[in-house]
Amino acid sequence: MTTRTLTMPRLGETMEEGTIAAWLIEPGQSFKRGQPLLEVETDKTVVEYPALGDGVLVETLVAPGDVVAVDAPIARIEATQWEDAGTPSPPAPEPAATPVVPEPHRAPAAAPAALRATPAARRLARQSGVALEVVTGTGRRGRIEAEDIPAAGPATILLLHGFAGDGATWAALAAALSRAGHSVLAPDLPGHGSDGTVPQGIDDLFSAVNRHATGVTGKIHLVGHSLGGHLAALYAAAYPDRVASLTLIAPAGLGREIEVAFVHGMAHARTGGEIAHLLRLLGPKAATLSTDALEAMAKTLSQGRLGVLAAAIAGPNGQRIDTLAPLSRLPDRIPLRVLIGRDDRIIPAAHLFNLPPRAAVHVLPTGHMPQWDAPADVAAIVTGAIQHV
């Protein structure tokens, strides 16, 4: 027999590397021509690599889970009439004779069973938060197939409102998502709505988002509007393992330009009339609020809880927050959708061109509040995003 180095095979025209899914024989074990030696996982499938001759597996050079480039060494074998052009290894030198000292017999330690799963199954498990170790595979030799992954239950969706808004701004979308069987959280962030604290900056709001998200079992779907979009992106980048998907609606922080007068006007508004003029910048729905609703908003905003936060968001030169940085750190496995209002008068719609290429962008014929102006369209997009995770 000749000692050879077995290399990672090229299993497709575009294959550059593969993952060792499992070794099907142990070192020291003999094999016959055509017998599968190992399983290799590519980006498309799992393939068994058969022996191209009779022989013995001398040692493995890589372990299950290792990503190996094509033609890189993966094992040493002793074989005869091997069809592959493997690289013969020089015979090992004879070791010097040494006295043999008998050792007590020890049973060899059992090697942990390699976890075998198709790429589709691994992807579904990651997205559903399912540990592959608890899944029973029905494929060949116990391999876990996509259909073995338990279907995900109803999703938990965390809705984060924008500056000077509150959880009630999500009423229509929250109702649609609830009717679809999902669990919906739409809290009032610090300084907004029923939360009477005075936020000292973005960090206070981020801490609140973290508290709400931490209380959820399993992964969450994040939906953020305007400033809430910035917070959602920050959270997804900081805790990607807790996030199933990210949807941003008219997000702040994609560029410098912003209607500064709106931000500071809302923070310092004292009357319903002031608020009415400012809300007309948001779109047609905002202009229909009743006098009672406007006066209620004025009563809350006149307490001055948002002054410090407004200064943290926007200054004389425009936006002071950056959402592009956390989006650049977002793992590719987290779906990213962005909804932009074509007629947005608060944040220019042209900021969409600053988004990363992988973002799925939807441009709607709305202002800064697509969830108000086109609630059915927004509900369909968000629901579809959840269903396709």
Score class of each variant (00 low, 15 high):
166 D>I: 10
24 L>S: 03
256 R>E: 04
193 G>M: 13
33 R>A: 04
197 T>V: 11
383 T>P: 00
123 R>A: 12
272 G>Q: 12
100 V>K: 08
387 Q>N: 11
243 V>A: 06
79 A>Q: 12
317 N>Y: 07
21 A>D: 13
253 G>F: 15
258 I>L: 09
20 I>Y: 03
101 V>S: 14
276 A>T: 07
280 R>E: 12
15 M>H: 09
349 A>Q: 10
95 P>V: 11
116 R>Q: 05
148 D>W: 11
169 T>F: 02
344 D>P: 15
41 E>G: 10
151 A>P: 00
303 Q>E: 14
342 R>S: 15
45 T>Q: 13
252 A>I: 10
108 P>I: 04
5 T>N: 04
90 P>D: 15
86 G>W: 05
131 A>N: 15
306 L>R: 12
14 T>Q: 07
148 D>Q: 03
274 E>D: 10
187 P>G: 05
260 V>S: 14
268 H>W: 04
240 P>K: 10
26 E>P: 00
268 H>P: 00
251 P>G: 00
146 A>E: 13
270 R>H: 10
369 M>E: 14
184 V>R: 15
310 A>P: 02
58 V>C: 05
148 D>V: 07
314 A>N: 05
233 A>P: 06
17 E>R: 14
337 R>V: 02
81 Q>A: 08
103 E>L: 02
236 A>T: 04
203 D>G: 12
3 T>K: 03
270 R>G: 04
229 G>I: 13
25 I>W: 08
290 S>Q: 08
360 A>D: 14
71 D>T: 14
305 R>T: 06
301 L>F: 04
31 F>C: 01
5 T>A: 11
174 A>V: 12
170 W>I: 05
232 A>E: 06
99 P>G: 12
130 V>I: 15
21 A>E: 14
292 D>W: 01
117 A>K: 01
16 E>Q: 15
183 S>I: 04
14 T>L: 06
324 L>T: 08
110 A>V: 11
225 H>P: 08
191 G>M: 09
53 G>D: 02
12 G>A: 15
349 A>S: 15
255 G>A: 13
12 G>I: 07
362 H>M: 08
239 Y>M: 00
162 G>M: 12
113 A>V: 12
307 G>F: 07
163 F>Q: 00
319 Q>P: 07
295 E>K: 12
368 H>Y: 03
265 G>I: 00
285 K>C: 05
54 D>S: 01
262 F>T: 07
47 V>S: 00
14 T>P: 01
167 G>S: 11
105 H>E: 05
189 L>G: 03
167 G>W: 11
50 P>I: 04
44 K>G: 12
212 H>A: 09
24 L>H: 05
11 L>I: 01
326 P>Q: 05
39 E>Y: 09
116 R>T: 03
32 K>H: 10
91 P>N: 06
343 D>N: 13
385 A>L: 10
235 Y>C: 10
